[in-house]
Write a protein that binds this DNA or RNA. Structure first.
Lengths: 137, 137
DNA sequence: TGTGCGTACTTACTTTTAGTAAGTTTATCA
DNA sequence: TGATAAACTTACTAAAAGTAAGTACGCACA
Protein backbone atom coordinates (compact mmCIF):
# COMPACT_ATOMS: atom_id res chain seq x y z
CA UNK A 1 0.00 0.00 0.00
CA UNK A 2 1.00 3.56 -0.57
CA UNK A 3 2.44 5.19 2.53
CA UNK A 4 0.02 7.96 3.43
CA UNK A 5 1.46 11.34 2.57
CA UNK A 6 0.88 14.38 4.64
CA UNK A 7 -1.88 15.82 2.53
CA UNK A 8 -3.71 18.91 3.62
CA UNK A 9 -6.52 20.94 2.16
CA UNK A 10 -6.73 24.68 2.75
CA UNK A 11 -4.04 24.39 5.39
CA UNK A 12 -6.03 21.77 7.30
CA UNK A 13 -4.37 18.34 7.58
CA UNK A 14 -6.70 15.46 6.82
CA UNK A 15 -6.82 13.03 9.76
CA UNK A 16 -5.31 9.62 9.08
CA UNK A 17 -8.55 7.88 9.90
CA UNK A 18 -10.35 9.73 7.15
CA UNK A 19 -7.70 9.42 4.49
CA UNK A 20 -8.19 6.56 2.12
CA UNK A 21 -5.12 4.45 1.57
CA UNK A 22 -5.12 3.25 -1.97
CA UNK A 23 -3.59 -0.05 -2.92
CA UNK A 24 -1.06 -0.20 -5.73
CA UNK A 25 -1.32 -3.35 -7.77
CA UNK A 26 1.86 -2.58 -9.67
CA UNK A 27 3.87 -2.66 -6.43
CA UNK A 28 5.10 -6.19 -5.84
CA UNK A 29 4.63 -6.13 -2.08
CA UNK A 30 1.24 -4.42 -1.93
CA UNK A 31 -1.39 -6.52 -0.16
CA UNK A 32 -3.77 -5.77 -3.02
CA UNK A 33 -1.81 -8.33 -5.01
CA UNK A 34 -3.10 -11.21 -2.91
CA UNK A 35 -6.65 -9.90 -3.14
CA UNK A 36 -6.32 -9.77 -6.91
CA UNK A 37 -4.99 -13.32 -6.90
CA UNK A 38 -7.97 -14.60 -4.95
CA UNK A 39 -10.54 -12.68 -6.99
CA UNK A 40 -9.10 -13.44 -10.41
CA UNK A 41 -8.06 -16.99 -9.69
CA UNK A 42 -9.48 -19.47 -12.12
CA UNK A 43 -12.11 -20.73 -9.71
CA UNK A 44 -12.49 -17.50 -7.75
CA UNK A 45 -13.99 -15.72 -10.74
CA UNK A 46 -16.50 -18.49 -11.40
CA UNK A 47 -17.50 -18.88 -7.75
CA UNK A 48 -18.19 -15.15 -7.52
CA UNK A 49 -20.34 -15.33 -10.63
CA UNK A 50 -22.38 -18.19 -9.25
CA UNK A 51 -22.85 -16.55 -5.87
CA UNK A 52 -24.17 -13.40 -7.55
CA UNK A 53 -27.28 -15.52 -8.17
CA UNK A 54 -27.74 -15.84 -4.41
CA UNK A 55 -26.95 -18.08 -1.48
CA UNK A 56 -25.78 -21.53 -2.47
CA UNK A 57 -24.69 -24.74 -0.82
CA UNK A 58 -21.22 -26.16 -1.35
CA UNK A 59 -22.56 -28.92 -3.55
CA UNK A 60 -24.66 -26.51 -5.58
CA UNK A 61 -21.70 -24.31 -6.32
CA UNK A 62 -19.69 -27.36 -7.30
CA UNK A 63 -22.37 -28.44 -9.73
CA UNK A 64 -22.62 -24.99 -11.31
CA UNK A 65 -18.90 -24.39 -11.61
CA UNK A 66 -18.23 -27.15 -14.05
CA UNK A 67 -14.88 -28.80 -13.58
CA UNK A 68 -13.94 -27.62 -10.12
CA UNK A 69 -12.74 -30.28 -7.69
CA UNK A 70 -13.90 -30.40 -4.10
CA UNK A 71 -10.42 -29.53 -2.94
CA UNK A 72 -10.09 -26.45 -5.11
CA UNK A 73 -13.62 -25.30 -4.35
CA UNK A 74 -13.03 -25.55 -0.60
CA UNK A 75 -9.74 -23.69 -0.96
CA UNK A 76 -11.26 -20.98 -3.14
CA UNK A 77 -14.20 -20.47 -0.81
CA UNK A 78 -11.82 -20.18 2.14
CA UNK A 79 -9.68 -17.50 0.53
CA UNK A 80 -12.71 -15.50 -0.59
CA UNK A 81 -14.14 -15.80 2.89
CA UNK A 82 -10.89 -14.66 4.48
CA UNK A 83 -10.99 -11.53 2.29
CA UNK A 84 -14.49 -10.79 3.52
CA UNK A 85 -16.18 -11.40 0.17
CA UNK A 86 -18.46 -14.15 1.36
CA UNK A 87 -19.86 -15.68 4.49
CA UNK A 88 -20.07 -19.32 5.34
CA UNK A 89 -23.01 -20.57 7.31
CA UNK A 90 -22.75 -24.10 8.63
CA UNK A 91 -25.78 -25.95 9.96
CA UNK A 92 -25.15 -28.50 12.71
CA UNK A 93 -26.71 -31.41 10.91
CA UNK A 94 -25.59 -34.68 9.44
CA UNK A 95 -24.89 -34.96 6.62
CA UNK A 96 -23.33 -31.48 6.69
CA UNK A 97 -25.19 -28.52 5.28
CA UNK A 98 -23.18 -25.38 4.52
CA UNK A 99 -24.37 -22.26 2.78
CA UNK A 100 -22.28 -19.58 1.14
CA UNK A 101 -23.38 -16.08 0.26
CA UNK A 102 -21.76 -12.84 -0.82
CA UNK A 103 -21.22 -10.03 1.64
CA UNK A 104 -21.93 -6.45 0.48
CA UNK A 105 -18.19 -6.16 -0.22
CA UNK A 106 -18.34 -9.40 -2.17
CA UNK A 107 -21.26 -8.21 -4.23
CA UNK A 108 -19.28 -5.18 -5.29
CA UNK A 109 -16.29 -7.16 -6.58
CA UNK A 110 -18.50 -9.83 -8.03
CA UNK A 111 -20.33 -7.16 -10.02
CA UNK A 112 -17.11 -5.99 -11.61
CA UNK A 113 -15.98 -9.55 -12.19
CA UNK A 114 -19.32 -10.25 -13.80
CA UNK A 115 -18.95 -7.31 -16.17
CA UNK A 116 -15.61 -8.64 -17.32
CA UNK A 117 -16.94 -12.19 -17.60
CA UNK A 118 -19.93 -11.00 -19.62
CA UNK A 119 -17.66 -9.15 -21.99
CA UNK A 120 -15.59 -12.26 -22.60
CA UNK A 121 -18.66 -14.42 -23.13
CA UNK A 122 -20.20 -11.88 -25.49
CA UNK A 123 -17.06 -11.33 -27.51
CA UNK A 124 -15.84 -14.91 -27.75
CA UNK A 125 -16.31 -15.14 -31.48
CA UNK A 126 -14.43 -11.89 -32.05
CA UNK A 127 -11.59 -13.25 -29.96
CA UNK A 128 -11.56 -16.60 -31.74
CA UNK A 129 -11.63 -14.81 -35.08
CA UNK A 130 -8.69 -12.69 -34.02
CA UNK A 131 -6.91 -15.84 -32.86
CA UNK A 132 -7.36 -17.55 -36.22
CA UNK A 133 -6.27 -14.43 -38.05
CA UNK A 134 -3.06 -14.29 -36.05
CA UNK A 135 -2.39 -18.02 -36.35
CA UNK A 136 -2.59 -17.90 -40.15
CA UNK A 137 0.29 -15.45 -40.37
CA UNK B 1 -19.56 -22.38 -26.54
CA UNK B 2 -23.28 -22.69 -26.66
CA UNK B 3 -24.52 -24.69 -29.60
CA UNK B 4 -26.49 -22.25 -31.71
CA UNK B 5 -30.20 -22.87 -31.43
CA UNK B 6 -32.54 -22.46 -34.32
CA UNK B 7 -33.77 -19.01 -33.47
CA UNK B 8 -36.02 -17.11 -35.80
CA UNK B 9 -37.62 -13.69 -35.76
CA UNK B 10 -40.98 -13.09 -37.38
CA UNK B 11 -40.74 -16.49 -39.04
CA UNK B 12 -37.40 -15.61 -40.61
CA UNK B 13 -34.49 -17.80 -39.50
CA UNK B 14 -31.34 -15.87 -38.61
CA UNK B 15 -28.36 -17.09 -40.64
CA UNK B 16 -25.66 -18.83 -38.67
CA UNK B 17 -23.09 -16.30 -39.77
CA UNK B 18 -25.05 -13.46 -38.26
CA UNK B 19 -25.96 -15.14 -35.02
CA UNK B 20 -23.71 -14.35 -32.12
CA UNK B 21 -22.43 -17.39 -30.30
CA UNK B 22 -22.05 -16.59 -26.66
CA UNK B 23 -19.37 -18.24 -24.59
CA UNK B 24 -20.28 -20.00 -21.38
CA UNK B 25 -17.64 -19.64 -18.71
CA UNK B 26 -19.38 -22.14 -16.45
CA UNK B 27 -18.97 -24.87 -19.07
CA UNK B 28 -15.69 -26.66 -18.51
CA UNK B 29 -14.86 -27.11 -22.16
CA UNK B 30 -15.86 -23.68 -23.44
CA UNK B 31 -13.00 -21.86 -25.16
CA UNK B 32 -13.87 -18.78 -23.13
CA UNK B 33 -12.20 -20.50 -20.21
CA UNK B 34 -8.75 -20.15 -21.74
CA UNK B 35 -9.41 -16.51 -22.60
CA UNK B 36 -10.39 -15.89 -18.99
CA UNK B 37 -7.23 -17.63 -17.87
CA UNK B 38 -5.06 -15.41 -20.01
CA UNK B 39 -6.84 -12.19 -19.10
CA UNK B 40 -7.11 -12.83 -15.38
CA UNK B 41 -3.72 -14.47 -14.97
CA UNK B 42 -1.58 -12.83 -12.34
CA UNK B 43 0.61 -11.04 -14.87
CA UNK B 44 -2.01 -10.74 -17.61
CA UNK B 45 -4.07 -8.35 -15.53
CA UNK B 46 -1.11 -6.12 -14.74
CA UNK B 47 0.21 -6.10 -18.30
CA UNK B 48 -3.19 -5.03 -19.59
CA UNK B 49 -3.29 -2.21 -17.04
CA UNK B 50 0.13 -0.94 -18.09
CA UNK B 51 -0.67 -1.12 -21.78
CA UNK B 52 -3.80 0.95 -21.24
CA UNK B 53 -1.35 3.84 -20.79
CA UNK B 54 -0.17 3.31 -24.34
CA UNK B 55 2.47 1.54 -26.40
CA UNK B 56 5.36 0.20 -24.37
CA UNK B 57 8.61 -1.65 -24.93
CA UNK B 58 9.21 -5.05 -23.34
CA UNK B 59 11.64 -3.55 -20.86
CA UNK B 60 9.29 -0.71 -19.97
CA UNK B 61 6.47 -3.12 -19.20
CA UNK B 62 8.85 -5.19 -17.12
CA UNK B 63 9.86 -2.15 -15.09
CA UNK B 64 6.25 -1.08 -14.50
CA UNK B 65 4.94 -4.52 -13.59
CA UNK B 66 6.95 -4.90 -10.47
CA UNK B 67 8.02 -8.47 -9.80
CA UNK B 68 7.46 -10.07 -13.17
CA UNK B 69 10.29 -12.16 -14.57
CA UNK B 70 11.38 -11.94 -18.19
CA UNK B 71 10.17 -15.45 -18.78
CA UNK B 72 6.69 -14.85 -17.41
CA UNK B 73 6.38 -11.50 -19.14
CA UNK B 74 7.30 -13.02 -22.50
CA UNK B 75 4.85 -15.86 -21.93
CA UNK B 76 2.07 -13.51 -20.86
CA UNK B 77 2.60 -11.19 -23.81
CA UNK B 78 2.52 -14.15 -26.17
CA UNK B 79 -0.77 -15.48 -24.84
CA UNK B 80 -2.39 -12.05 -24.92
CA UNK B 81 -1.11 -11.55 -28.44
CA UNK B 82 -2.47 -14.92 -29.54
CA UNK B 83 -5.90 -13.90 -28.26
CA UNK B 84 -5.73 -10.73 -30.34
CA UNK B 85 -5.54 -8.37 -27.38
CA UNK B 86 -2.24 -6.82 -28.30
CA UNK B 87 0.14 -6.43 -31.19
CA UNK B 88 3.86 -6.91 -31.13
CA UNK B 89 6.03 -4.73 -33.31
CA UNK B 90 9.64 -5.75 -33.62
CA UNK B 91 12.24 -3.40 -35.07
CA UNK B 92 15.15 -5.03 -36.89
CA UNK B 93 17.88 -3.46 -34.78
CA UNK B 94 20.51 -4.61 -32.34
CA UNK B 95 20.03 -4.63 -29.44
CA UNK B 96 16.41 -5.67 -30.05
CA UNK B 97 13.60 -3.14 -29.85
CA UNK B 98 10.07 -4.49 -29.50
CA UNK B 99 6.92 -2.53 -28.88
CA UNK B 100 3.62 -3.78 -27.55
CA UNK B 101 0.28 -2.06 -27.81
CA UNK B 102 -3.36 -2.94 -27.24
CA UNK B 103 -5.65 -3.72 -30.14
CA UNK B 104 -9.19 -2.28 -30.07
CA UNK B 105 -10.28 -5.66 -28.71
CA UNK B 106 -7.56 -5.46 -26.09
CA UNK B 107 -8.62 -1.99 -25.04
CA UNK B 108 -12.11 -3.25 -24.37
CA UNK B 109 -11.02 -6.06 -22.06
CA UNK B 110 -8.36 -3.92 -20.49
CA UNK B 111 -11.00 -1.33 -19.63
CA UNK B 112 -13.05 -3.88 -17.75
CA UNK B 113 -9.95 -5.27 -16.09
CA UNK B 114 -9.02 -1.76 -15.09
CA UNK B 115 -12.40 -1.15 -13.49
CA UNK B 116 -11.97 -4.25 -11.37
CA UNK B 117 -8.38 -3.35 -10.51
CA UNK B 118 -9.41 0.16 -9.53
CA UNK B 119 -12.09 -1.17 -7.26
CA UNK B 120 -9.61 -3.42 -5.49
CA UNK B 121 -7.09 -0.61 -5.09
CA UNK B 122 -9.74 1.77 -3.82
CA UNK B 123 -11.26 -0.67 -1.37
CA UNK B 124 -8.12 -2.26 -0.01
CA UNK B 125 -8.59 -0.89 3.48
CA UNK B 126 -12.15 -2.13 3.61
CA UNK B 127 -10.93 -5.57 2.57
CA UNK B 128 -8.09 -5.57 5.09
CA UNK B 129 -10.50 -4.45 7.79
CA UNK B 130 -12.84 -7.28 6.88
CA UNK B 131 -9.90 -9.69 6.93
CA UNK B 132 -8.89 -8.63 10.42
CA UNK B 133 -12.45 -8.82 11.61
CA UNK B 134 -12.75 -12.39 10.38
CA UNK B 135 -9.36 -13.42 11.73
CA UNK B 136 -10.23 -12.27 15.24
CA UNK B 137 -13.16 -14.66 15.47
C1' DT C 1 -25.58 -54.60 15.83
C1' DG C 2 -23.97 -53.36 11.79
C1' DT C 3 -23.94 -51.70 7.10
C1' DG C 4 -24.61 -48.07 3.90
C1' DC C 5 -25.68 -43.27 2.75
C1' DG C 6 -25.07 -38.23 2.05
C1' DT C 7 -22.40 -33.90 2.44
C1' DA C 8 -18.54 -31.17 3.17
C1' DC C 9 -14.48 -31.34 3.61
C1' DT C 10 -9.08 -33.12 4.21
C1' DT C 11 -4.97 -35.72 2.97
C1' DA C 12 -1.48 -38.02 0.14
C1' DC C 13 0.30 -38.18 -4.15
C1' DT C 14 1.11 -36.80 -9.14
C1' DT C 15 1.23 -33.45 -12.69
C1' DT C 16 1.35 -28.90 -14.27
C1' DT C 17 2.68 -24.25 -13.80
C1' DA C 18 5.48 -20.53 -12.00
C1' DG C 19 9.89 -18.72 -10.42
C1' DT C 20 15.13 -18.29 -10.78
C1' DA C 21 19.19 -17.91 -12.94
C1' DA C 22 22.03 -18.46 -16.63
C1' DG C 23 22.57 -18.60 -21.62
C1' DT C 24 21.75 -16.86 -26.68
C1' DT C 25 21.80 -13.51 -30.42
C1' DT C 26 24.07 -9.77 -32.93
C1' DA C 27 25.01 -4.83 -34.40
C1' DT C 28 27.50 -1.25 -32.33
C1' DC C 29 31.01 1.12 -29.81
C1' DA C 30 35.40 1.63 -26.96
C1' DT D 1 39.06 -7.80 -29.48
C1' DG D 2 35.84 -7.52 -26.24
C1' DA D 3 32.20 -5.56 -23.65
C1' DT D 4 27.27 -3.95 -24.02
C1' DA D 5 22.28 -3.81 -24.44
C1' DA D 6 17.49 -5.72 -25.18
C1' DA D 7 14.48 -9.33 -25.82
C1' DC D 8 14.00 -13.43 -25.44
C1' DT D 9 14.91 -18.89 -24.44
C1' DT D 10 16.40 -22.83 -21.73
C1' DA D 11 17.38 -25.77 -17.74
C1' DC D 12 16.33 -26.45 -13.28
C1' DT D 13 13.77 -25.93 -8.79
C1' DA D 14 9.80 -24.66 -6.06
C1' DA D 15 5.06 -23.96 -5.62
C1' DA D 16 0.47 -24.64 -6.97
C1' DA D 17 -3.21 -27.31 -9.04
C1' DG D 18 -5.34 -31.75 -10.23
C1' DT D 19 -6.72 -36.61 -8.80
C1' DA D 20 -8.32 -39.97 -5.99
C1' DA D 21 -9.07 -41.80 -1.79
C1' DG D 22 -10.14 -41.07 3.05
C1' DT D 23 -12.74 -38.91 7.24
C1' DA D 24 -16.65 -37.55 10.23
C1' DC D 25 -21.21 -38.53 11.75
C1' DG D 26 -26.05 -38.91 12.51
C1' DC D 27 -29.79 -41.41 10.48
C1' DA D 28 -32.29 -45.17 8.07
C1' DC D 29 -32.84 -49.77 7.23
C1' DA D 30 -31.93 -55.04 7.95
Amino acid sequence: MKAPENIEIAGEPIPLSLRLQRGELLAADCPSRSVLKHVTSQWGVLVLLVLLEGTKRFSEIRKKVNGVSEKMLAQTLQSLESDGFLIRKSFPVVPPHVEYSLTPLGMEVATHVSTLADWIESNLTRIIDARNHIQSK
